[in-house]
Design a protein around this nucleic acid. Structure first.
Length: 471
RNA sequence: GGCCCGUUCGUCUAUCGGUUAGGACGCCAGGUUUUCAACCUGGAAAGACGAGUUCGAUUCUCGUACGGGCUGCCA
């Protein structure tokens, strides 16, 4: 028997990978990876009506983007339905579960009455202790016999010991009247069969844990370590929904955030390690533990995500950034970079990455590489190309023919013009910027010159100054 | 309705009975500057409320308020 930690992420395919689910996945991943354990993936698709191959694919795609790698092949819960049903039948045979012939209509009517009268809506099946000889023909569900007195204590790693009076527990359904297993049974069986030692999941399952314990006890299985983490809320403190912005992780990818930053931000949302804010995966894995998990729901803050994204982009190596940039372009449907453009992007990355918070911004700052020539200045850039601006370009161009193409020499040549004219360097840079990029917000003019090279730089300057003359 | 959980600056959080209640994002002011960004310095900004325990409560207990969850033949 090994003491290896085994965690799992068990999303249901609902169309996209929810950002809150992604954080749950991250926590499980961090916990397992930081302890040399295994991290498994299980698709909870027992609800056939809501499960589609596309939705399942969206989970894989999201996990892949976030870099949350899992061990082995993903388990599909639906494929294990026979095993789940076997367990239910085993409990039935052992007298720990029973056939309930109450119809859904009967139960619904009971609940309506109970609610109206202000009583508990907990349904007590009249069939719990009826002998088989007295069973009618017809459809039935299989219900577990839950304890009706005493207390159940959930030893939760985040919430502490949570005590539930057993009179709150219902005899939950294990098998539907068509014989298919329900989720509550499937999770328990799968977690047990997969050897899951530690379950980190949303605290919407906290109450369910008490009910699931009934199954564990009935089967004589060991209960996993549970950690129920608070949900993520929208900026108004309400449950995160569409009106708060993006729900699916694919949307965050399309917005251009760095995947490393997503991991960093999501980890920090509801978990803390002292005052550490910016950290690597290795650090997160080393530091992550139950002690640092908060008990209250956290609100999603795009501003902070942005900041972290910028920091991660600035500290990621250039080649990796080019890769991530190309993946970003692919999800947004933008055309692929040509080999030449990609090479220029790579050579410019050192200056692009320290001024971009996300890949959309990075592309924007790289406009001088991507724009078609001849450059067409926008309105603001055009305003720097007055007579003075044009004359600066005229004066500079010949110098660029002979100067060695290094930053020092380019700076020297350009500064000389500023000096002789007795104006600030900014006045010189503005028209150059306009000519090279056609806009006013760009990397340093010297960075652009170095990336573009002598030929292209001079061509752009002459394009502009020539055009102005003919106007 | 019943049961369960939560509540520190606007936001994410540190604190594990004794602190001028710390950090980060954002915001404001200043600096640097070649535009944008980045960066540097400074500033405003918090213990939901009410009791109790204690020499001493943000921290422990109870109540109230507010928020969230569960209460399905959904997951």
């Amino acid at each position: 028997m090994s003491s290896q930690i085994i965690t799992r992420f068990a999303p249901s395919p609902t169309g996209y990978l929810h950002i809150g689910s992604a954080r749950t996945a991250l926590f499980n991943w961090l916990y397992a990876r930081g302890r040399g354990g295994k991290f498994l993936l299980r698709i909870e698709d027992t609800d056939r009506a809501r499960s589609t191959p596309e939705a399942t694919q969206a989970i894989f795609t999201g996990m892949d983007w976030l870099g949350l790698d899992y061990d082995g092949e993903p388990v599909t819960q639906f494929e294990r339905a026979v095993r789940h049903a076997d367990v239910a039948h085993e409990l039935l045979a052992a007298g720990k579960a029973y056939k309930c012939f109450s119809s859904q209509d009967e139960i619904a009517a009971f609940r309506d009455q109970a609610r109206a009268a202000g009583r508990s809506t907990l349904f007590r099946s009249p069939w719990r202790d009826v002998e088989a000889a007295n069973h009618p023909q017809g459809a039935y569900v299989v219900r577990i016999k839950a304890p009706q007195s005493g207390k159940t204590v959930i030893a939760d790693q985040v919430q502490g010991d949570v005590t539930i009076n057993n009179d709150q527990l219902d005899d939950m359904v294990l098998l539907r009247s068509d014989g298919t297993p329900v989720y509550m049974l499937a999770v328990v069986v799968d977690d047990h069969d997969m050897g899951v030692t530690t379950v980190i999941r949303g605290d919407d399952h906290l109450n369910n844990a008490a009910r699931q314990m009934t199954i564990y006890h009935a089967m004589g299985w060991q209960i996993p370590v549970w950690a129920h983490i608070p949900l993520i809320h929208g900026s108004d403190g309400k449950k995160l929904s569409k009106r708060h912005g993006a729900l699916g992780v694919d949307e965050y990818h399309a917005m251009g955030y760095s995947a490393a930053a997503m991991r960093n931000y999501l980890a920090r949302l509801g978990w803390a390690h002292g005052n550490d804010e910016f950290f690597t995966d290795a650090q997160a894995q080393e530091w992550f533990g139950f002690g640092g998990i908060g008990k209250s729901p956290a609100r999603f803050d795009f501003k902070k995500l942005s900041k972290l994204s910028g920091q991660h982009i600035a500290t990621t190596d250039d080649a990796a950034l080019l890769h991530e940039l190309q993946a970003f372009l692919a999800v947004t449907g933008a055309p692929k970079l040509s080999d030449q453009t990609a090479a220029q992007m790579l050579s410019a990355m050192y200056c692009l990455k320290e001024r971009a918070r996300d890949f959309a911004e990075l592309i924007d700052k790289a406009q001088f590489i991507l724009a078609e020539t001849p450059i067409t200045p926008d309105v603001k850039a055009q305003s720097t190309l007055d007579n003075t601006g044009i004359s600066i370009l005229h004066e500079l161009t010949p110098h660029l023919q002979n100067v060695t193409w290094t930053r020092d020499d380019l700076e020297r040549v350009t500064s000389q013009i500023a000096e002789t004219r007795g104006i600030g360097f900014g006045k010189i840079a503005a028209p150059i910027r306009a000519a090279l990029a056609g806009r006013t917000a760009t990397p340093s003019v010297f960075d652009m010159m170095l990336v573009l090279g002598r030929q292209d730089t001079i061509a752009r300057l002459t394009d502009i100054s020539a055009k102005e003359i003919t106007d």
